[in-house]
Amino acid sequence: MQITTIGLDIAKNVFQVHGGNRQGQAVLRRKVRRDQLLPLFRRLEPCLIGIEACATAHHWAR
């Protein structure tokens, strides 16, 4: 499973993680709790990560 791109929908406690390969096929779809996010990324090869940036995302960033 070679993931080249990840889309991350951030939230307060649960994140949606979607990973795609070079062909654009979804190879990872997972709901992840906040404490599981970094361990998940540590197991993956380096790749491009896109993060949702809505109004609530900016609120939590502050």
Rank of each mutant, 00 (worst) to 15 (best):
Met1Ser: 15
Met1Phe: 12
Met1Thr: 15
Gln2His: 13
Gln2Met: 09
Ile3Ser: 02
Ile3Met: 02
Ile3Ala: 00
Ile3Val: 12
Thr4Asp: 14
Thr4Phe: 00
Thr5His: 09
Thr5Trp: 03
Thr5Glu: 09
Ile6Ser: 04
Ile6Gln: 02
Gly7Asn: 04
Gly7Phe: 03
Gly7Thr: 04
Leu8Asp: 14
Asp9Val: 00
Asp9Ser: 06
Asp9Asn: 07
Ile10Gln: 06
Ile10Asn: 04
Ile10Thr: 10
Ile10Ser: 06
Ala11Phe: 00
Lys12Asp: 15
Asn13Arg: 11
Val14Arg: 08
Phe15Cys: 11
Phe15Gly: 13
Phe15Pro: 06
Gln16Gly: 09
Gln16Ala: 08
Val17Cys: 03
Val17Tyr: 02
His18Val: 12
His18Phe: 05
His18Trp: 08
His18Ala: 09
Gly19Tyr: 03
Gly19Arg: 04
Gly19Ile: 03
Gly20His: 08
Gly20Gln: 13
Arg22Lys: 14
Arg22Pro: 12
Arg22Ile: 08
Gln23Tyr: 09
Gln23His: 13
Gly24Tyr: 11
Gly24Glu: 14
Gln25Cys: 07
Gln25Glu: 15
Gln25Gly: 12
Gln25Val: 08
Ala26Gly: 14
Ala26Ser: 13
Val27Leu: 11
Val27Thr: 11
Leu28Pro: 03
Leu28Val: 07
Leu28Thr: 04
Leu28Gly: 04
Leu28Gln: 09
Leu28Glu: 10
Arg29Leu: 12
Arg29Asn: 15
Arg30Tyr: 05
Arg30Cys: 10
Arg30His: 08
Lys31Trp: 09
Lys31Pro: 07
Lys31Ser: 14
Val32Trp: 01
Val32Arg: 00
Val32Phe: 01
Arg33Cys: 12
Arg33Asp: 15
Arg34Thr: 10
Arg34Ile: 10
Gln36Gly: 12
Gln36Phe: 01
Leu37Trp: 01
Leu37Glu: 04
Pro39Leu: 01
Pro39Cys: 03
Pro39Tyr: 03
Leu40Ser: 05
Phe41Val: 10
Phe41Glu: 09
Phe41His: 07
Arg43Thr: 15
Arg43Glu: 15
Arg43Val: 07
Leu44Met: 04
Leu44Val: 02
Pro46Lys: 00
Cys47Ser: 06
Leu48Ser: 10
Leu48Val: 06
Ile49Gly: 00
Ile49Phe: 00
Ile49Ala: 02
Ile49Trp: 00
Gly50Leu: 00
Ile51Phe: 08
Glu52Arg: 01
Glu52Phe: 00
Cys54Gln: 08
Cys54Met: 05
Cys54Tyr: 06
Cys54Ala: 07
Cys54His: 05
Ala55Trp: 07
Ala55Met: 10
Thr56Ala: 07
His58Lys: 09
His58Pro: 11
His58Ser: 13
His58Val: 11
His59Gly: 13
His59Thr: 13
Ala61Gln: 10
Ala61Asp: 13
Arg62Trp: 10
Arg62His: 14
Arg62Asn: 15
